[in-house]
Design a protein around this nucleic acid. Structure first.
Lengths: 220, 220
DNA sequence: AATGCGCAGATTGTCGACAATCTGTTGACA
DNA sequence: TGTCAACAGATTGTCGACAATCTGCGCATT
């Protein structure tokens, strides 16, 4: 066993987490409320926390900057982005288009790709999670559904761009209220429509889904 | 004069170009044909070229990676992305939505912002550039128009995302053919429609504009 | 008391050096 | 002759140290 390895779990801390892993950790920490919007991210602190040198922390912060999670001011370091409600609404306006395009593309390709089984599984998982009351289950199922749709849509640029939309920060700020379950059946319906290859309807359902979240956010 | 400064021109090499500046330089170099898709980007070479240490080059490459211009493989360095025609078409499918949203949002806000003058100027510049035959003029005018529209739309997330769409690489690969002038009047028409506050028409015109480019690309 | 100056501490920016990893080549062996 | 292991050169990954910059506080001055 020449190579060093310490951990067992997937997310447990390895001997040397990579910059991307650290970035992910920070996003998770943000959704878990360990970091709050506006908070300064001092490199030295993060070094201690993750047990790596500043170089790697620096790269992780650059990732997060590219993903719009932190802002990077020259000579003044990084801080977690603060999203105004207005910005959140605009972001969801954009998300509406993007998610619509994902579903439309996926529906068009559902036959070609041949792997609608993954989508079926995700739908099943989603409906199952609606039975249990564990929000973590729902969130995971939701993520799987999105992943399946993105995969089927097979538009690399679209997938890349969708990851760049900062939903994390919004969730961290405005709580899971708008994102929580209760939408499970609505999402499942979208999945089924894609499976049926009905691209027009899939797009419209997807847009309506995001639109509803946006309106919910505007009312609060 | 305590601080060091060597250069005079704007794009000329300063004493110490920053990572973002180097990234921009590389994108320009790409559009100018100095780098070709697929080409490896060795850190040491870039160090010599820009006269900085590897740290900065590394950051620049990370920027470019985030912008989808280069791919970064662990332990194997960076290379310029190669975009297939199919990907380019898909990217333009996405761009169609995004540009449409920009124009629609801008048209809605044209009154509120109060600074439609910038847009008028851009339109004028565009029409003027159609008279001359210098493509650089046209490209500059085009950029100004887009900037004005983005500014008026004032959707920060949308603007951020639009910058992430890799048009540079596409232009570098497929040439300026599809992007060259001849479209000046079409773009000016979009600008005028936004100025008139007709959001529906502005969106449709914008989408049609991108659609045409896409179809042009598909035919080649 | 209010304003501005300058210093100390904290934090980020950059470099050089070394470790880890990859790649192509050489040579032994079947 | 073909295959595979070991090696050398090239390249990337990471660290520690030092320089540059910012921030807040104390102090002199009006």
């Amino acid at each position: 066993m020449p190579t060093t390895f310490t951990s067992i779990g997937a997310t447990a801390s390895r001997a040397k987490p990579t910059a991307a892993e650290i970035a992910r950790s920070i996003v998770e920490g943000l959704e878990a409320g360990e970091f709050t919007p506006g908070q300064r991210m001092v490199e030295a602190d993060l070094c201690l926390r993750f047990g790596v040198g500043r170089q790697i922390i620096r790269e992780a912060l650059q990732h997060l900057n590219a993903y719009g999670v932190v802002a990077l001011e020259p000579n003044r370091g990084a801080h977690i982005i603060h999203v105004t409600r207005e910005e959140a609404v605009m972001t969801l306006e954009l998300t509406e288009l993007l998610f619509g395009l994902v579903s439309r593309s996926a529906a068009r390709r559902i036959a070609a790709g041949g792997n609608g089984s993954r989508l079926s599984d995700a739908i099943g998982e989603l409906l199952a999670s609606a039975q249990t009351d564990d929000p973590a289950d729902y969130m995971r199922a939701r993520r799987h559904l999105f992943a399946a749709l993105s995969h089927i849509a097979s538009n690399p640029e679209l997938n890349r761009i969708m990851e760049q939309v900062r939903v994390h920060v919004m969730r961290a700020q405005f709580g899971f209220a708008a994102f929580k379950s209760g939408h499970a059946h609505e999402l499942a319906e979208i999945g089924r429509t894609v499976l049926a290859g009905n691209s027009e309807a899939a797009e419209e359902l997807s847009r309506a889904y995001v639109r509803r979240i946006r309106e919910l956010l505007q009312q609060i």
